[in-house]
Amino acid sequence: MKIAVHNLLSCGGCDPVFFLEESPEFFRKAEVIFWNKVKDETLKVFRKIPDQGIEIGFLCGAVKSPEHEEVVRLFRRKCRTVVAVGACALWGGIPGLLWIRKEGPRPLSSLVVPDLSIPGCPPEGSTWTVYLQGLLSGRPPGPSEEPVCQECPRDRHPFRLSDFKRFPETEPESRGCYLSLGVFCAGAVTQKGCGARCLRAGYPCLGCYGPPAGLTARGERLLSAMVSALVPQKATEALKNWRDPAGSLYRFDLATHPLVRKGKCGRSD
C-alpha cells in the first residue's frame, strides 16, 4: 500500500511518527512515497505520481500559505483517501486564536473534503487505532455523539453559580464537575474518545477533540449553559471577572467560527 504523509502548519505532534508504535505493522507494510521525516524525497517526486496513484495520504496541520494550499490540493489529486489528522487540520487548532488579530490559519477542510478526520490535539494513540482500523476495514468512523463527560471521573449534579472561576481557584482535591464549580470545562461540548485525559490530570477539558456529532455552535452553547446557571444578582459581577472569553469558548476552533469565516471578526492593533 502506497502512502504519503505531510505536515502543513503544525507543531509536528500529530505526525504519524508519533503513532508508529500504535500501528507498526501498518507502517512496516506500507510503501512510503512521500514523508520528509523518513525519506530524502521532495515534492518534485510527489508531483510526478499519477493521479489517484497513492492509497492513503495523511495530512496534519492547518493551512496558511499558498504552498500549503498547493500541497493539500496535490494530496487530494494523488491520493484515493485523504486523512486529516488533528485539531489544526480539522478546525484550525490553537493558532486559530490568531484570528482575534485578523490573521489566522484555516482548517484543511476549508479547501478539500477529507475522507476521514481524526480528532484531537493530538489524537490519542487509541483514537488513532480506532480510526485507522475502521478505514482499513472499509468502515471509517465519524465523530462520536457523546461528550467527554461520559468518560469523566468527576461527579455531576444540578448546580447554580454565583461566580465564574479559573480552575486553579477551585479546591484542588474536589470531585465535582468543573462546571458546577464555575469553571468553563469544555467537556460537555467536546466529543469523547480521549478517555478524559485532562480531567484525570487535574485540568478541565480544554476541548481538543472538537464537537460531538451534530452539535453546532459549541462555544455559544457552553456560554449559554454557564450563564443560565448564574444567580441573577451576581451575574454582572461574574461576567466582569470572566477572563479570556474567546480562549475559553473557542480554544481550538475559532478558525471555523461563522464570524471568522465571514471575515467579520478580528481587530487590527
Binding site: 450563564v227 441573577p232 467579520k264
Partner: peptide
C-alpha cells in the same frame, strides 16, 4: 427576558474579545 439579557451581555463580552 432576564436570562436573555444576561446571555446577550455575556455574548457582548465575547464579541468584544473577538474584535467585533
Amino acid at each position: 427576558n432576564l436570562r436573555a439579557g444576561l446571555r446577550l451581555k455575556a455574548l457582548k463580552r465575547v464579541l468584544s474579545a473577538l474584535g467585533e
